[in-house]
Write a protein that binds this DNA or RNA. Structure first.
Lengths: 185, 185
DNA sequence: TACATACGTGCAATATAACGTCCAAACTCT
DNA sequence: AGAGTTTGGACGTTATATTGCACGTATGTA
């Protein structure tokens, strides 16, 4: 993510090698200088979208084939090592486990609500859908003035483009996993 | 195409306005300076992919929603105004009518073969498919040592990742439309 | 009117993308 | 082995992306 452009470099180099093209030949096909191509491949510079466009066009590639991320087979995220976002005086804590990324258009949080906590969430943009999987405690969610009671092991799915409220009316802590999906209109 | 980055600017501005965001707020969400955002929106500068990444992530957008081209409703391409690519001493002429573009992953040519012309085409990369629609004359195409006779109003479809030969053995000119599709593996 | 706030843009400084030229290593050919 | 060719990378220069600061305009408020 912070080293995002290295992906593109690797993709270009792989495709170039698959086609047995030299940097010179690729430069000729794309109209991008050999030096620049080499630097992009080695991750030494991040191209502007105009040069990326030239590369994609010259090599007859789609954008997605260039920006596609290399995914490690296995990744483990330790919640203890994730800095939570604190709200409601620490009663409402959000742990971003899988941050958003333009390719996979969703993000995953773990959310904790202390007993008595009521959190009012801003409406998201249109097309956003939330999936709430309750792990512990009983969660109350208000959407469209309607109250939904979500028991442990139950899941609530709703369009989050309107204001909604999370509430823990029990005396036990509430822990839930939240997946937010952003549909690019 | 040459003014490609203006598209992205328009897309960002449109989305930002839809969400009632100021440049300041957008800068805060994306980590890209307000000035830069303004320049990108106005087409005054072409962002690098790292800043585009920041914008897409901060605004929870996909890449495709940012790079999507504005398509005019109607476009007319006059073959007379298209510079053909000349080969075989002018006996083989290729008119690029619709150039390749990374979004729509194909290109369209009009091809003319004078009588007696034989053109040997380089193999394309794997995954490339050709669609040949013969308009005038009778075209012979050799693929995998197999000769195919394509009469007027007939269409030949074949995977073009191997050498192939176009031949006009008749005494009438051959004109055909060719669509080449590149599947981004 | 005067003041305040929010918004978009202009300007100067800096970082870096993009280019042309040159160079060293590897690979052909006799 | 030696000359020529191809390859990828290094260096210096130019173009431009990116930033922070400041300015002008609009809108609302007392």
């Amino acid at each position: 993510m912070e080293e995002f452009h290295t992906n593109i470099g690797e993709n270009i180099k792989r495709i170039r090698k698959e086609r047995n093209l030299s940097l010179d030949k690729t430069s000729e096909l794309t109209g991008v200088s050999k030096t620049m191509l080499g630097q992009i491949e080695r991750g030494k510079s991040a191209p502007t979208i105009t040069t990326l466009w030239k590369i994609a066009s010259g090599l007859r590639l789609s954008f997605s084939s260039l920006v596609s991320q290399y995914k490690p087979n296995v990744t483990i995220v330790k919640k203890k090592e994730v800095n939570p976002i604190i709200e409601n005086n620490g009663q409402y804590r959000v742990y971003p486990l899988v941050p958003y990324n333009p390719e996979q258009q969703f993000e995953i949080f773990s959310v904790t609500l202390e007993p008595g906590c009521e959190h009012i969430a801003e409406p998201h943009t249109t097309g956003v859908e939330e999936f709430i999987l309750v792990n512990e405690g009983t969660l109350e969610v208000v959407v469209n003035e309607q109250v939904y009671i979500v028991e442990p092991e139950d899941t609530l799915i709703f369009k989050a483009d309107r204001p909604h409220i999370y509430r823990n009316n029990g005396d036990h802590i509430v822990k839930c996993s939240v997946v937010i999906h952003y549909s690019s209109q």
